[in-house]
Simulated assay, not measured.
Amino acid sequence: MKRHFNLLREFSVPLLSGVVAALIWVNLDAEGYHSFNHAPLFGPLSFHFITNELFMVLFFGMAAVEITQSCVPGGDLYPLRKAVNPLLATMGGVVGPVLVYLGLNAVIGSPALHGGWGIPTATDIALAWLAASLVFGKRHPAIAFLLLLAIADDAIGLAIIAVFYPDPLHPIAPQWLGLTLAGMGIAFLLRQRKAASYWPYLLIGGVLSWVGLFKAHVHPALALAFIVPFLPHPPREHKHLFEEDPRDLSPLASFEHEWKVVVDFGLFMFGLANAGVEFSGIGVATWLVFASLLIGKTGGIFSMGMLGKWLGYPLPSQVGKKELLLVGLIGGLGLTVALFVAGEAFTDLRIQGAAKMGALFSGGCGIIAFIVGRLMQVRRKP
């Protein structure tokens, strides 16, 4: 039973099931789907609000855990020289899609679509890992390189959401961000006093951070991204990304271990709440987002990774031009964060739906990478 349970998580079955359920529901009964999603469910709170404003706090909190662990001694982004090439590739994987999106929009789009440039900037970590495992085998060095890119561009994606996608109907009220700063201050004091549980950090620092962001009209799903880095953790990492260290009983590791299952299965809710797009809604925004993820991610990651190598910051062992090209293709899997940003980028539901369909189409990047990998005879590492 435990093995089957872990396989469901490993192959992102909850998220994909939520996406499929939403697509079927909205195309059979659009009115019923939207009523369920936006009508009050628990008191005044709708299913969409509970998912995007509350549950996604944990999702982005998990991303913050991986970023924090990667940046300490022994982590995959420490020291800086070790991180230069993946960080350069990350910048290519962010700037490339933005340039492709804005360039294509200038040719075939319209000013109304300009704000969607942030949608293709991030990579879906779970789906990227799954696709890379199928393309390279589970222990190939290219996977760790890809996951570093996904973690780093998700961090950039968090910043883009916070800075560039405030609620257009409610201007930013920066005075409320003092509560978020207060939450960070309390988390710092808890760390100084060596609080041995993550709960005070979440219940005091996290709640203050969420209320501050919510009142300031900055997306509150980012609340724990400001708190998690203060959770105590060992001074040195002994495992790579997504590997559990049974010796690590710190509050940071405990938070990840105890809530990772909730997040993995809770992504069914996210898929159900955000992937409800009618097939008739496919439009220009669909192709802008999909092309930006497919072409921009691939070209940006490949070109900047090769530039880093030329500058003297080598790629990992067994990662050459073919592997780097495949990493770029898999990086185009933007499903989760792309859906999230699409919901923030456009208030017009027709355009929003078309953009979300482009995010859903990005799942094809994994299929393309698998086919290209076989054609180029890239050897899998079992």
Rank of each mutant, 00 (worst) to 15 (best):
S317Y: 15
V289R: 04
L329P: 01
K321G: 13
Q318W: 14
F290H: 03
L329E: 04
W310M: 15
L307M: 11
G334N: 10
S317K: 15
W287M: 11
L329Y: 11
F340A: 10
V284M: 13
P316L: 10
D264G: 09
M304G: 04
L329M: 09
G276H: 05
K260N: 15
V319F: 07
F340Y: 12
T336W: 11
V337F: 14
W310L: 15
I330R: 08
V341G: 09
L293G: 04
P316F: 07
A275H: 02
Y313A: 08
S280G: 15
L288F: 01
E323W: 11
L333S: 05
I301V: 09
L293T: 01
L315P: 09
G331F: 06
G283H: 09
V289P: 05
G308Q: 02
V337E: 07
A291K: 10
G266A: 07
G266D: 04
D264F: 08
G328F: 11
G332S: 07
V263I: 12
T286G: 08
G332T: 12
N274A: 03
S280K: 14
Y313F: 15
A285W: 04
F270C: 01
L293H: 02
S317T: 14
G320C: 14
G300T: 05
P316K: 10
F268L: 13
I282M: 12
I295Y: 00
V262E: 09
K321R: 13
D264I: 01
G343F: 13
M304L: 15
F290C: 09
I295C: 06
G320E: 13
F340T: 08
K297H: 04
W287Y: 13
S317D: 15
L329I: 12
K321V: 14
A285L: 09
G266W: 03
T286K: 05
Y313R: 12
L272F: 00
L307V: 07
G305I: 07
T286E: 06
A285S: 03
F270D: 00
Y313T: 00
L315H: 05
V341F: 05
F268V: 03
V261T: 14
I301P: 01
G300D: 03
L288K: 04
I330Q: 10
L329N: 04
V319W: 08
K322E: 06
L326Q: 06
F265N: 03
I330K: 09
G266I: 06
G271K: 04
S292N: 03
F265P: 02
G312I: 06
L325F: 14
L272H: 00
A285F: 01
F270T: 00
G334C: 11
Y313G: 06
L315F: 02
V284E: 12
L288M: 06
K321F: 11
I330C: 14
V262Q: 10
M304A: 11
D264H: 10
L324C: 05
L294W: 10
A275P: 00
A273N: 05
V341K: 06
E323I: 11
F279G: 10
A273Q: 02
F279D: 08
F340L: 13
I282H: 07
V327K: 02
G331P: 07
P314W: 04
V261K: 10
V277L: 05
G300F: 01
L326P: 06
V327S: 05
F265S: 02
L267K: 12
Q318L: 15
V261G: 07
L324P: 09
F268E: 12
I295M: 08
M306W: 03
K322T: 08
L324Y: 03
P316R: 09
G343L: 10
S317E: 15
